[in-house]
Amino acid sequence: MAYTKVAKKYSGKINEVTLGTGDKAITIGGRNVLPLHHFDGEVGNPPKVGLEITDIVPEDWNDALKDLYSDVIGDAAKWAKYVEDNYAPDFICLHFVGASPDGANKSVEECVEVAKQVADAITTPLVVAGSKNDEKDGELFAAVAEALQGKNILILAAKEENYKTVGAAGALAYQQKVAAESSVDINLAKQLNILMTQLGVKEEDIVMHLGSAAAGYGFEYLSSTMDRVILAALGQNDTTLQMPIITPVAFDTWGVKEAVASETDEPEWGNAEERGIHLEVATAAACLVSGADAVIVRHPKSLQTVKNFIEGLLQ
């Protein structure tokens, strides 16, 4: 018997979504095959990798990273420019940790000011992430979307609790892109996408944030949710699930024990920065293979590795 390839043809296709403007604009999605399955058909746009920066000095970050950025860490605009010049990520994620009412509780006006400065300092596409407080983020995103009109940013993210504010302001009034965030469940993801489109947000303006998890911390739920979403999007041509996926890997991986525990606490484990990078690249690779079209990482070495990884898989 001769070898026969199992043909894989899907009726559905992942939507294309463009972020940013000008030469550095990026497009994600566009494939009609499983993630990175270049041998099956149209693999679409290569997945994109973004680097995280924060609006205020991120006290809980790994010390080595804070040292690396010590000259720019106090000024988000300088930091963004530094990252753009030195590491050339596909996009930059400005994470408003300072907006959290449980933390620095920066006002919406202060945050908007930071967003404007960052956006003016760079030409790389921008993703803005919130503080995890739905109410505050709703206001923050609406204001940032307005202030950065024309920049074609991605807002990360609208949730069931605030999608009306975020969707209406972000996508409808100011034509930005919006990520719809659900918590690791295909039905919740689908429902939020439907709610967003019913609000009038166009499908090609939506990206999905299906939840996130570090390797070892329930990652199987995320991976299987991605599998199911993609099989429905491609195999059943379910248009309510054909939005490309973004996963903020950095937000989880640098917060778990394997990355956080100091060398004093876990002498056997060795350097914490090294552990963080390995955990970050393992999680990012697992997300990409499962179906993420974009991932956000924190460490420049993770960025470089994941970019090489994608290139290697698609060479």
Partner: peptide, 9 residues
């Protein structure tokens, strides 16, 4: 690091 990414894959 690449080895870790590939092993995860």
């Amino acid at each position: 690091y690449m080895q870790t990414a590939l092993a995860a894959t």
